[in-house]
Design a protein around this nucleic acid. Structure first.
Lengths: 244, 244
DNA sequence: TTAATAGTGTCTCTTAGACACTATTAT
DNA sequence: ATAATAGTGTCTAAGAGACACTATTAA
């Protein structure tokens, strides 16, 4: 709960100044798949500590703001994107000393964005553009990160990555990284990008098409280059769902 | 991270009084299996709001205390138990208004305790005894809970329960609910208690014994009543592990 | 001998994974 | 014709789940 009934914890007639309180922030691990590589959004810090280092986007939770609203706000300040973003809470990092200045408890979130080059309305979908601040923001391939991330952000990122990979196996999270319509090859490339290993084409297609309530064929095809056009599919549910 | 580089978020020379901050608490969903039923630890609130209602044990995170240390402390204040407790972070609940008094962000944890009647050293292992406060604390069967839990604690409990059930399938969390040595029937009853459904005895034993690095037979047997004695087993790892 | 729990094997069905060729298009 | 990607089926091995009887003990 919020308080137990220990006398010292009684909040009736509570004086907000009576106890020292930690700061609460949200950090966002935003992934996207571009150029067949998984990328994460990082911002470069302008001030100490870790000035000049790359860090996850994040910031304070406002007093009247839900945690995922705060995460969404921080993300949109960096990317300008709010629609089509899958957001989920990851873990809360609160070890004393993780921020050298003061006690900071950070609720880490994972965000998944459709690939910026996926032809969504609004050409810069998923493109970081500095947002409301002048800080540098960029998509970094997860297999080629800058040398030292600020704070404990390397650990947060590692957790997000393992969670994403795990969820790929039993949910349809890939929805959140793909445009509304896509080919089975594009879907497979997304899986391969995230898992960082090749998958067998026939087995992959068999499994995806066999999954109950996952994919629907559209009447459209995608024709690309000098090869056979590909059937376009869409996800039955726009939200990621559990797969039995 | 903790701050991005938005000007207003610059914490250099930070004045702790400059921003209003939420309160941060931990809540603990403590499970144990007794009398072939899954139980959760609840405390009765003595003060408003929700005076007289049952609630999860919890309380403020101290300024120099890690989140899971806070959870462990709150739990031990209710149960007196610190050893042999498996504790993991569950989810952070922070919706404005979830506590009618002030903004409270609560980091919920799940704890698993060995059954109190399992013959551990210290006869009251897992028995709640009011701890440092005078509040009433009791183990409630999860299928017969008191009518209305305080705050959003029913949702927290529901989440913990589904997490526990899910983890039973792919980890050895059951370690944390059993004494060091146990029979396969006891192990099966623990699973059935948590999942609230019967399992096939032959399939269950086949699977458990086939699991690599999970169980070890001890040279001991348990003889109980008027029937064949049972082989005692122990877990190879005292910590819950992932099962491939 | 009875009541109570421990312990044991087979069959079927589903799923995962290895594996190679044909189809269609633009140039 | 060639290069490039789409699309397709079979076999095997492993795991999940249905299913019923014998073994050992205390009373």
């Amino acid at each position: 709960m919020d308080t137990n009934t220990v006398l010292g914890d009684d909040l009736t007639g509570y004086d907000p100044a009576a106890f020292e309180r930690p700061s609460v922030t949200v950090d966002v691990v935003a992934f996207t798949a571009k150029n067949d590589r998984l990328h994460v959004l990082l911002v470069r810090r302008g001030v100490a500590p870790f000035a000049g280092a790359w860090a996850l986007p994040g910031g304070f939770v406002k007093m009247d703001e839900d945690l995922d609203d705060a995460a969404r706000r921080e993300l949109s300040e960096e990317t300008g994107l709010t629609a089509n973003v899958h957001l989920e809470q990851l873990y809360t990092f609160g070890k004393p000393g993780r921020d050298p200045r003061t006690r900071v408890i950070s609720v880490a979130h994972m965000a998944l964005l459709p690939a910026p080059d996926s032809g969504l309305p609004g050409a810069l979908a998923g493109e970081p553009h500095g947002g409301t601040d002048a800080a540098e923001a960029a998509w970094w391939p997860v297999d080629t990160l800058p040398p030292a991330l600020a704070f404990d952000h390397a650990a947060i990122l590692a957790l997000a990555l393992s969670r994403l990979r795990a969820k790929l196996g039993y949910t349809s999270v890939a929805v959140a990284l793909l445009p509304p319509e896509f080919t089975l090859s594009e879907l497979q490339r997304t899986y391969e990008t995230i898992l960082a290993r090749p998958l067998d084409k026939r087995n992959f297609r068999k499994k995806m098409l066999a999954a109950e309530g996952l994919l629907e064929a559209t009447p459209r095809q995608k024709r690309d280059g000098a090869h056979r056009p590909a059937q376009l599919f869409r996800f039955t549910n726009r939200e990621p769902v559990f797969l039995g």
